[in-house]
Structures are given as structure tokens and as C-alpha cells.
Simulated assay, not measured.
Amino acid sequence: MSWISALAELQERGEPCVLVTIIEERGSTPRNAGSKMVVTAERIYETIGGGHLEYKAMEMAREMLEKRTQDTRLERFSLGASLGQCCGGATVLLFEPMGQPQAQIAVFGAGHVGRALVPLLASLPCKVRWIDSRENEFPEQLPAGVEKVVNEDVVDEVENMPAGSYFIVMTHNHQLDLELTAEILKRNDFAYYGLIGSRTKRVKFEHRLHERGFAPEVVQRMRCPMGLPEVKGKLPMEIAISIAGEVVATYNANFGQDVKKGESTVAKLLPGSRRERG
């Protein structure tokens, strides 16, 4: 894949990368100025000539990805004994971070809290799919980066999200909340699952999910009540700010890491939430 095609695909997926460009060459070098390479946490696209130079460039690019730096970087390399290359020339590389990590979020429910929450999420490095069966509940204007999904059977939309997604359930129907919860927990490959509701709702859901055969450690990954306990209040915007804060804490912790089944980053970050809704 060419470097420009790779950049387009990575941007579409919301995957961060570093574009490495040879901007200066002196003497004998393996590639000419203008040659480019795209580096992600797992792959590279194109080449700047191979050898130890390319290895060092990949190492530096991945260090930038790990540190989440957005600053460009210039590095000069002598292609002699220090790099184990026989070219003998010198080259200057430009490292340009491209994109930010983007959380893939599915918000089920276009009620009052959903209408307060979605614009907040849209202002973050997130891609939001806003899902409801009721067309008339959505506002006329959607924030940029938000995809509206109207589906009579919203449960079908769970499988359309990629692994490592964030799921937020706040529908108008408790039975629908339960069916969505079951489908999400069945996947068990999410980065975050939050369900609006009180401790009483959680206890009822835990009982019903155990009856359906869900293991306790899987059910434990559900955040209900959800949101940062430090953010008080019952107004839709107050609840939305609390939930958005918890999402931010989760994707900051998960950046550069694979989401492992059975692990709950939020549970580690926030061992107890006192927020009660519904």
C-alpha cells in the first residue's frame, strides 16, 4: 500500500501514525529526499531505505506514538559506522504525527441525556454512532463527526461496532436496556460499557444476566451507575459531563494498549461510582 493510501485508511479508522520523510540527503544514501514511510504501533507502509536507519526511524516514531506527542521532530543521521550502513552519506528525517487516537462510541438513546452527551463526545477525539428507533427524537442538526442511526431493532447495531468500542446505553425502555446489555456483554471485547441507572437497576440486571448464564466477572465490567462520582447533579448536562469524563479517563488509559477480555480499565480507575440514574 502506498503511503498516501495508508494515511487515508488510517485516518478513516481513527488510528494514529507518524509520517517519516527524508527531507535532506548528502552523499550516498539508500533513498532520495522526498521518500516517505508511515509508521503505526504495529505496521509500516513504504520504506525509507531499510537497514538500521529505518529501524531507528521506526523506533523513534513508535516512541512518539506511545507518548502521544503532536510535535514534529527533525533528526539527522550519519550513515556510517554508527548505523552499520556502508552508504557513508547523511540524511535528515522529518517525523510528523498524524491524527489522534479516536474512540469508537455507540450511544443508544436520543433522550434528554443523550442530546446533552453526544455534542460533548463529538468535541473529543471520538467517532460517535447515535442510535435510536425514534427518528423524531434526534435534533435537526447533528454535531460534526456524529452518525445518526435509525433502526427499529437497535440491538442489531451492537455487532456493527469494532472491537475495543465504547458502548453507552440510555434508552427509554428498561427491557431494551437489558437486551442491549446482554448483546454487549456477550461480545466482551469492549473498552467501556456504561448503562444509565441506579444501584437498584444494576442489582436487577445482575440477577437477570446471571439467570442467562453470564459469568460474574463479565457482568462486573458493566458500569452502572456510570459516570464520575465526583460530578454531582441530576440535570441532563451534569449527567452528560460525568459520563464524558469517565469516557475520557478510559481512552486515556487505553491508548496504545489492546483491550483484553475480562479486564475493566474503568473499574481499576474508578473502583466505586455513586452516581444513580433512572
Score class of each variant (00 low, 15 high):
T40Q: 09
G145D: 10
P97A: 04
I44G: 04
S2L: 14
G227T: 04
G111Y: 08
E263M: 08
H112M: 01
G51M: 12
M1V: 10
G109D: 06
M64C: 00
V248Y: 09
P236L: 05
L185K: 01
A81M: 10
P97F: 02
A33L: 03
G164L: 07
K186N: 12
A41G: 13
P236I: 00
C87Y: 10
V247Y: 04
E46H: 06
G51Y: 12
S28L: 14
A8T: 02
M222R: 09
N252K: 15
A244W: 12
M1T: 11
G49R: 08
H207M: 14
T47G: 06
T21D: 02
Q104M: 14
M58F: 04
K268I: 11
D258E: 15
S2I: 11
E217K: 09
Q102I: 10
L19Q: 00
V154A: 09
V146Q: 06
V146R: 03
E54T: 08
R223W: 03
P139C: 05
G194A: 07
E230I: 10
G99I: 01
V155P: 02
E24A: 13
E230K: 10
G99C: 06
E206M: 13
V38R: 00
G51T: 05
A122R: 08
L228D: 11
M1Y: 06
N151V: 07
P30K: 05
Y193S: 10
V154Y: 03
E135F: 13
A267D: 13
K201L: 07
C224S: 15
L74F: 09
Q175H: 13
P101C: 12
P30E: 03
I23W: 01
D177E: 08
S273L: 13
K260S: 11
S35F: 01
F95T: 01
P101N: 14
G245K: 05
Y192E: 07
A57F: 05
L195D: 10
M37K: 02
A41E: 15
A253K: 13
T171A: 14
D258I: 08
L142Y: 05
N252T: 13
E183W: 00
P125E: 11
A103F: 14
G194L: 03
A116Y: 02
I105V: 15
V92Q: 09
